[in-house]
């Protein structure tokens, strides 16, 4: 992956989140506090404004993480932000990286999310999408397939009862709604697949 792919990835993600901003808010209103789309769109807007190729994937990834940390807020801001800052530490100080490095960075990122959020698969959070997606990529699945699978994982949160995050307060009333953070994570994988395929 090149740095310009990296830039394109965040631009594509921003476009997708903006397009689905209201849907994400509505999903969050059903089982949370209705701000997930607004939060992510606000933060990603700042990211795409500032993100320019810098010659260093490490620096760019760290910048995205710091910017999301300081603009998104809420659970998703802390998770996305700290995961990216963590992931950046294994990225090269160059404009290019290979597949292994990318995998290592992803794995570092989800470790950080797990440590912060203490959620596992089945808790009805974005981890329900992140963990199987990274596992599939590690076992060699093409990004396009992983993205499709991510979307099904997000949809598969619908029947679950939330155990982490704000939706957990609803108890059994959280059943029957897709987790907003899972959907936005699936959008990130779609964005990645588009950028890598093209």
């Amino acid at each position: 992956m090149t740095e310009s792919d990296f830039v394109a990835l965040w631009r594509a993600f921003y476009d997708k989140v903006t397009a689905k901003r209201d849907e994400l808010n509505q999903l969050d209103a059903a089982i949370g506090d209705g701000d997930h789309g607004t939060n992510l769109a606000r933060g990603l807007g700042r990211v795409v404004e500032e993100l320019k190729p810098s010659g260093s994937l490490r620096a760019s990834c760290r910048m995205v993480g710091m910017r999301l940390l300081s603009t998104v807020g809420g659970a998703s801001g802390a998770l996305w932000g700290s995961a990216l800052v963590s992931a950046s530490t294994v990225l090269p100080d160059e404009a290019q990286m290979n597949h292994e490095t990318a995998l290592a960075a992803l794995s570092r990122g989800i470790d950080q999310m797990r440590a912060r959020g203490k959620a596992e698969v089945g808790d009805k959070t974005m981890m329900d999408v992140w963990i199987p997606a990274v596992t599939a990529l590690e076992s060699g699945a093409p990004v396009g397939d992983v993205a499709a699978q991510a979307m099904s994982s997000a949809e598969a949160t619908r029947p679950l009862q939330a155990r982490r995050g704000r939706a957990a307060y609803l108890g059994s009333r959280s059943i029957g709604h897709v987790d907003p953070g899972s959907l936005s994570t699936a959008l990130w994988w779609e964005a990645l697949a588009e950028v890598v395929d093209s």
């Binding site: 939060n39 940390l69 300081s70 603009t71 807020g73 801001g77 932000g81």
Partner: peptide, 12 residues
């Protein structure tokens, strides 16, 4: 203070 109903960010 964060945004309305949104936790404040760590830098704040």
């Amino acid at each position: 203070a964060g945004e309305v109903f949104t936790s404040p960010t760590p830098d704040q």
